[in-house]
């Protein structure tokens, strides 16, 4: 059994090792080792197209994560205060947002906005078009739903007596929120933020449809794989893999330390 589990880890990490290994290969061919070199890292980080795609992706991921963390938290707090049909309706929307495949979200966003823009653009002095903003909006939809679920799980596990104690001690509602509720929610908000950031940074399919003329890093990687990949891409990939590992481990540690309910 131990051997089986070890083989599974090899299976999971072999392709990642292959990418990282390729980034240190001085030759261009993926399957032929031609000696150790760091040149591709230099080339990748001086390639303006790669740097621009990386910047766009970081910008989209960051704005998305901030907005999702805020809106998701507000939604979870708001849902604590409603019941019945309002709550059931929101629950349904949250689950629909999570379950509709990314490709359908991308397509429907594209055709809805393009149709509206085609109708209103002749009337306007500016030209509205798809772009990074649409990627952010579509990612925020999915991630807000995720953050709302995470924060709500935390709220439901929260000890109500702390809030009552704070109120008994004459804290204002906002004071109670800021000094009692928010610190308790912070780990799940931060974990949601990190997940949202990673999701957005990694997403290809939604961005592929709605990014318009803007190029994110996954779109750039997709088109260079189509043209024939160079170890430059492996170098960027290795840096990205390493950074997302660090983010993920951080998110996990935060969730575990805060005693997340199972699920």
């Amino acid at each position: 059994m131990r051997l089986y589990v070890m083989l599974i880890y090899v299976f999971l990490y072999a392709p990642i090792g292959f990418i990282v290994g390729g980034s240190f290969n001085s030759g261009k061919q993926a399957m032929v080792w031609q000696g150790f070199s760091l040149d591709w890292y230099g080339k990748a980080f001086s390639n303006p197209l790669i740097m621009e795609a990386l910047t766009t992706s970081l910008y989209i991921a960051l704005v998305n994560a901030v907005l999702s963390a805020i809106i998701g938290t507000l939604t979870a707090l708001g849902l604590q205060r409603v019941g019945g049909w309002t709550r059931a309706g929101f629950d349904a929307l949250i689950y629909i947002a999570i379950m509709v495949p990314g490709i359908v979200i991308g397509i429907s966003t594209l055709i809805a906005f393009v149709t509206v823009f085609d109708a209103v653009n002749p009337l306007l002095s500016v030209r509205l078009e798809m772009g990074a903003w649409a990627v952010i909006a579509a990612h925020v939809l999915f991630n807000t739903a995720v953050v709302a679920l995470l924060v709500r799980a935390r709220l439901q596990g929260m000890d109500r007596s702390l809030v009552e104690a704070s109120e008994d001690l004459y804290a204002t509602p906002f004071g109670t929120f800021r000094q009692v509720v928010l610190p308790l929610l912070a780990p799940s908000i931060l974990a949601g933020f990190l997940l949202a950031f990673t999701f957005s940074f990694e997403d290809f399919i939604i961005a592929y449809f709605v990014a318009g003329p803007d190029v994110t890093l996954p779109i750039y990687i997709f088109s260079s794989i189509r043209r024939g990949v160079t170890p430059e891409i492996n170098a960027v990939g290795s840096v990205v893999v390493l950074s997302s590992f660090i983010l993920l481990i951080a998110a996990q540690l935060i969730l575990r330390r805060s005693g997340r309910p199972a699920g």
């Binding site: 990418i19 990694e202 590992f245 993920l248």
Partner: peptide, 17 residues
């Protein structure tokens, strides 16, 4: 965490590999 981590790293490059 090591089992889960690969899912969140570049899907494109992993399938390319």
């Amino acid at each position: 965490v090591l089992v889960m981590a690969p899912f969140w790293t570049s899907q494109l490059l992993r399938y390319y590999a």
